[in-house]
Amino acid sequence: MWRKSSHSDNGGDGNCVEVALTSSTALVRDSKNHAATITAPSWAAFVKAVKRDELGQV
């Protein structure tokens, strides 16, 4: 099941990021590109870095 980011734009210009999790992968897509497949450990490391604010301004 795809889950939409709470930070995605709801203003109608189509800026949207969604993720679907399985037991072994995370599928990530935005409103303009096809989904990318990421391994579960890589996704977990990414989420951890975001929560710790280790990525800075992207």
Rank of each mutant, 00 (worst) to 15 (best):
V19D: 02
S6A: 11
S42G: 12
A44M: 09
C16P: 02
G14R: 06
N33H: 12
S6L: 13
D13R: 06
S42N: 15
S5V: 12
V17Y: 01
K51W: 03
S5A: 09
D30G: 02
T25V: 13
E54N: 04
A35E: 12
V28F: 03
G11K: 09
K51F: 00
T25I: 10
A20T: 05
S24Y: 01
I38M: 09
I38Y: 01
V58W: 11
C16M: 07
G12K: 05
S42Q: 14
T39W: 06
L55W: 04
A35G: 03
F46A: 05
S6C: 03
A35I: 10
L55A: 03
A44D: 15
L21W: 04
A26S: 09
A49F: 11
M1K: 12
T22G: 05
A26Q: 06
S23W: 06
A45M: 14
D13Y: 06
M1L: 14
A40C: 10
W2G: 08
W2L: 10
V28M: 10
D53A: 12
R29D: 04
N10Y: 01
R3N: 08
N10P: 00
W43C: 05
K51E: 14
D9S: 15
F46V: 11
S6Q: 11
D53Y: 02
C16Y: 01
G12L: 10
K4L: 09
G56W: 13
A49M: 14
W2T: 13
H34F: 01
S24Q: 14
V58E: 09
L27Q: 10
W2C: 07
K51V: 01
W43R: 04
M1S: 09
A36F: 13
I38A: 01
T22Y: 02
G56I: 15
S24F: 05
A45H: 08
V47F: 03
Q57P: 03
R29N: 03
V28H: 02
R29M: 10
K32Y: 02
V47R: 11
I38V: 15
D53C: 03
G11V: 11
L21E: 04
F46Y: 12
M1D: 13
K48R: 15
K4P: 00
A45V: 09
G14T: 10
I38L: 09
N10L: 06
T22H: 02
D13Q: 06
D9A: 12
C16V: 13
S5G: 07
G14L: 14
D9V: 01
C16N: 07
G11H: 12
K4T: 15
A36D: 07
T25D: 12
S42A: 15
D9Q: 14
L55G: 01
T39A: 10
V47P: 00
I38W: 01
V28T: 06
A36Y: 08
D9L: 15
L21I: 10
